[in-house]
Design a binder for these strands. Structure first.
Lengths: 248, 248
DNA sequence: GCGGATTGTTGTGCATTATACAACGCAGCG
DNA sequence: CGCTGCGTTGTATAATGCACAACAATCCGC
């Protein structure tokens, strides 16, 4: 009995509220969780009391409350990696003209925790807070390839014809990624989007995140990838150096 | 008995984790909430299972988990006001050279939900997710002055010598704010920082947020404030027009 | 404007559940 | 090597949250 039922249910409700773009009714919540309407009502009321949910005055339906933004802020502002990475992300944008991202490992997925946008009108942005699969993004592959403790994902869902879906092929691909020190996503997650990323290590040599750039395949030709990779690698190495001096 | 105890305790734990910059121990959590260590342990374990908390491997202490960032993202990206306001914030930065912000009312405070930074090296940034008091910020005063339903804050804490701490004085000040249609913060919250803000209304004429600019007192001289106010007012009015056509 | 249907909220008894107390394993440290 | 402080794990008890049901409120078509 290591899981508090009502807390778990409350968290699940928040996730349901987050997943749906429109406000959700009590009945829908109850049906989705397989619990009674009255339980769902009281749980979501408790969430509302503390600002984690709020009900639309007109429709009586519930949506996520503003309190979650506060939690998010205090997490992001207290992340030393994020502060340290910011100038390097800016540098990457300056040198490559593409958008730069920082991601960490969260729940066996890549969580984008910061982004610097390029000035190009055609650009590839991935909002802060996005979760992306590990096996088909450059940032994710870095986390996957350089982190020892992480288990390979069991399912390899396909997003484009180029997505690597064979476990053996992925293993070889990650092997190559390790050798060259950086990862490439060649239109494996989004059509027409290529990414290059490199891992960031802490003082113990453990992967704590990855930084990289994303751009349209047109500007990020395969012949230019090695150049981009070098730029990203340089930034990631310098950032890793910085991170060696602070803990966590 | 409309409040589910264990869910409420879990939420309080998240707030404690968010409030503390360093990881928190189980004992501290238990003491802070006035509950037993074992209860705190199981609650925070449940949070950890779902990614809302995570424990530092070395110290066994707990900090906020990455899942909260996801929740925040889905809230912010589904906020029509935020999308609609973005170009106006950019416009404000272009026209004034100062940082522009968008805030909404949350838990009787001003919650900053978006920001566009200026290029100036000396600039006043307020991170997305920040909560600020209503009575001493320009954005907050807008929410306070133009929202009928909201009660005046009971306590008026002072942050600088200029903070308005007398309820009667605040009432008069808000009256003037209503008349002129915009609010001014003249170094009442941060030394050397002045802000100008104007309210945003929806199709029913209800306040749904406020936009404004913040800058160092040096550049935002009192003689220039009327000009800035006009620029902010124009943007807020146009944004309100846009918001009239979509609900919520 | 009105009846029917759907939805959200409010009692209440019961049983599940979360809780407090205590014991245990495990570090760090003198 | 024993001590102390910490986090986790049993366990019994009782408080708590749950399902069922009735109620209130809203929306729908006609």
């Amino acid at each position: 009995m290591s899981e508090i039922q009502s807390l778990a249910r409350g968290l699940k409700i928040m996730e349901l509220l987050a997943a749906s773009s429109d406000p959700v009714s009590i009945t829908e919540l109850a049906a989705e969780l397989g619990i009674d309407k009255s339980s769902a009502s009281r749980l979501v009321q408790t969430l509302a009391i503390y600002g984690y949910a709020e009900q639309d005055a007109a429709s009586r339906r519930y949506r996520l409350g503003p309190q979650v933004v506060r939690l998010s802020r205090s997490l992001l502002t207290r992340m030393p990696l994020r502060d340290a990475a910011k100038p390097f992300l800016r540098q990457l944008v300056e040198r490559t003209g593409e958008c730069a991202h920082l991601a960490i490992l969260a729940q066996d997925q890549a969580l984008y925790v910061d982004q610097v946008e390029s000035a190009a009108s055609l650009r590839v942005t991935t909002g802060v807070g996005t979760l992306a699969p590990l096996h088909c993004t450059a940032l994710g592959k870095c986390l996957l390839a350089f982190d020892n403790g992480i288990a390979s994902p069991q399912a390899l869902p396909s997003f484009t014809p180029r997505t690597i879906t064979d476990p053996q092929a992925l293993r070889l691909h990650l092997e190559q990624t390790r050798r060259q020190g950086y990862a490439v996503d060649d239109e494996e997650y989004d059509f027409g989007v290529r990414c290059v990323a490199a891992p960031v290590f802490d003082y113990r040599g453990k992967v704590i995140g990855a930084i990289g750039i994303s751009g349209p395949a047109g500007r990020m030709g395969l012949d230019r990838l090695p150049h981009f990779a070098q730029v990203v690698l340089d930034a990631a190495r310098e950032l890793s150096n910085r991170m060696s001096f602070q803990r966590a």
